[in-house]
Design a protein around this nucleic acid. Structure first.
Lengths: 192, 192
DNA sequence: AGAGGCGCAGAACGACCGTTCTGCATTGCG
DNA sequence: CGCAATGCAGAACGGTCGTTCTGCGCCTCT
C-alpha cells in the first residue's frame, strides 16, 4: 500500500465516520480500524486530527461541487436549458442528494457548528467551500452576463443552505422542492 | 438556593458554554463550576447530560421565539405594518441577532449536526423548535388569511435558516439583508 | 550470517468525559 | 446534647480521546 492509497483509505474512512457521527465522538483508533492503515502512517500523512478533518472536508468539497456541476451541465445538455433551467437544476440535484440514505445535512455546517470558528484548518476549509459554492452560483447566474448575478446567487445560496439543514432535521426531502419553488419565483421576479 | 434557582443557574451555564463551544467538549464539571451548583444537585435536576442539553434548548426556543415575536409585534405597532411589513421584520430581527457579539449560528442546527438524528431528547427538542418557528411564520403569513400562507412561510423559513448558518460561517451579518431582499421579492411575487 | 532501517499493532501516556460514590459538614428535631 | 437526615466538594470509577512510544517482525544490504 503506497501513501496515495493509504491517504485515500483514510479520507474514505474519515468521510464515512465523521459525516455519520460527528467529529469529536470518533476516535483516531476507529479511523485506523476502518481504513486498515496504521496509526503511525495516519499521523505521518496527517499530523493531527484537525488536519485529517480539514483534508476530508476539502476532498468532499471538490466531489460535492463536481457532482453538482456535472448534473447541472448534463441537464443543460439534455434539456437545452437556459440560465433559469440551469439555476433551477441545482435544486433538482439537491432533491436527489436529500434522498440518499446516508444524507445527514451539510458536512461543512455540521463541522463548523461542532468545532466553532476558532477551529483553524477546519474552519478555513468550511469557509472556502462556501465561497466556492457561491462563486459557482454566480457563474451560473451570470451566463449570460447580467448586473444582478451576485445578488441572485447570494439569495439562492441561502435557499440551498436552508434547505439542506431543514431536510436533515426534518428527515424529509421536501425542502428541496420548497427551495426550488422559491428560486423560480426569485428568478421570475428579475427577468432578462 | 432552591431548586428553581439552581435549575436556572444550570440552564444559564449550559446555554453559555454549549452555545459557545459545542456540547461534547464541555464537561459536566465545567457546567457545575460555572453554575455554582453541586454535581449531585445537577444530576438530581437533570438525570443525564442529554436531558440538560434538551432542557437548555427548549428554554432557548421559548426565549428565541418570544424575542422574535415581541420585536415583530412592536415594529407592527410602531409602523402600522401590514402582513408584508411583519414578515419582513423577521429579517430585521435576524440582522440584529447576527450582530450580537456572542452570535454563533443556530444552536439547534449546531446541536443536531454535532449529535445527530439519534440523539433522543436533544433531536426531539431541535425538531420541535423548527416546527414551532414554522408555525409562527405561517401565522404571520396567514394574517389576513390566504391560501398560500404555508407555502410562503416554508420558503421564508429556508431563507431564515440559510441566513443564520451563512452568517455564522462568514462572520458577517449580510446574509440577513440578502434574505430580507429575497423575502421581499417572494412576497411581491404573490400579491393579495 | 549479522546489522541496520522501516513499519506495524497496539500499549502507553496524559487528559478529559459522564456518572456515581464517600467522607465530612450542616441543619433540624427530640 | 446526640442522632438522623440532607447536601456538598471533589475524589473515584470506567470509559474514551489524541498522540507518542515500544517491542517485534520483516526486508535489504554487505
Amino acid at each position: 500500500m503506497d501513501h496515495e492509497e493509504a491517504s485515500r483509505r483514510l479520507l474514505d474512512a474519515a468521510e464515512q465516520l465523521y459525516y455519520a457521527r460527528g467529529i469529536q465522538s470518533v476516535g483516531m483508533d476507529e479511523v485506523r480500524d476502518t481504513a486498515g492503515v496504521s496509526l503511525a502512517r495516519l499521523y505521518r500523512l496527517f499530523p493531527s486530527k484537525q488536519h485529517l478533518v480539514a483534508a476530508y472536508l476539502r476532498r468532499r468539497d471538490e466531489r460535492w461541487r463536481a457532482s453538482l456541476a456535472r448534473y447541472v451541465s448534463e441537464r443543460a445538455v439534455e434539456h437545452g436549458a437556459d440560465r433559469r433551467g440551469r439555476l433551477l437544476s441545482v435544486f433538482d440535484w439537491l432533491a436527489e442528494w436529500f434522498r440518499e440514505p446516508d444524507f445527514r445535512g451539510c458536512a461543512f455546517a455540521n463541522a463548523f457548528g461542532e468545532l466553532g470558528a476558532g477551529s483553524g484548518p477546519v474552519a478555513d476549509a468550511v469557509r472556502e467551500h462556501k465561497a466556492l459554492v457561491r462563486r459557482y452560483l454566480v457563474e451560473l447566474a451570470d451566463d449570460p452576463p447580467r448586473a444582478d448575478s451576485t445578488e441572485i446567487a447570494d439569495q439562492l445560496l441561502l435557499l440551498l443552505e436552508g434547505a439542506t439543514t431543514t431536510a436533515a432535521i426534518t428527515g424529509s426531502p421536501d425542502p428541496a422542492r420548497t427551495a426550488r419553488a422559491a428560486a423560480a419565483a426569485l428568478l421570475a421576479a428579475k427577468p432578462a
